[in-house]
Design a protein around this nucleic acid. Sequence first.
DNA 1: TTCCATGCAAACGTTTTGCATTTCG
DNA 2: CGAAATGCAAAACGTTTGCATGGAA
Lengths: 133, 133
Amino acid sequence: MKRTRNTVQRQAVLDAIRALDGQHPTAAEVFEQVCNTPSETCPRLSLATVYRALDTLTAQKQIAEIRLGTVCRYDAGLDLHHHIICRQCGTVTDVCEDALPVTLYRKVEKCSGYIVADEPIQFYGLCPKCNKL
Amino acid sequence: MKRTRNTVQRQAVLDAIRALDGQHPTAAEVFEQVCNTPSETCPRLSLATVYRALDTLTAQKQIAEIRLGTVCRYDAGLDLHHHIICRQCGTVTDVCEDALPVTLYRKVEKCSGYIVADEPIQFYGLCPKCNKL
DNA sequence: TTCCATGCAAACGTTTTGCATTTCG
DNA sequence: CGAAATGCAAAACGTTTGCATGGAA
């Protein structure tokens, strides 16, 4: 693990993700959140810095990355849980983990040849809001 | 459903996806496949046309779209099955459906409030090839 | 003093769009 | 003929990178 330095920018990014807990923000949303906090700690923050901070924090396991193909969202929750993504609006919602049989991973590993350990599962569906439209 | 016309380009795209069955090609890979077929039916095919053909075929349910965030891959198989995606190389592999308890969808629907009917599940893991590296 | 981190701008890969032209029905 | 589809180029989008500068340890 490479040694890192503490910076106001990275701390602000971490704070922002925690402030947005449960919302699984994108990099752009984290950027917005930092810029809109009253205490202007990062007057000149750049999006590139946000991306780099997110990478570092993920590598340090201080946050979790939710990969949606090439697009990423981020999660302040570090316990293993799963996600369901709305096909329509892209919202990511946590799935309570007790809904999933423990043996499922082993079954999937056996029939795919992949190693699935500790990787969150992604469900797709229609969120309540989009379902009403 | 909007009425569509038959064109050599769209047919070539459909043929290409079927030829690549099991490989879950991207739009670019479909494009390559069409351009490299011996029978040069589409001398001047453009990527934009491939994207439009893929959209149309998906709307007609002649193929299935595998959404990976903003990136898409396409599937000639129309039966309900799930996918596992390699964290490392992005390869998409089918998961045999009998590995998944039927009640799982109902459980996930209940605890998330989403409608999950007929939506493929995405697992993430390490594929056998990347696991050996 | 070192070298990691930053800001900026430019580059990147994938997908979408505008528009004139072609072609199916 | 009219509507849909095409090819091309440019734009859009999220993300990454090169580089000179700044700042933590």
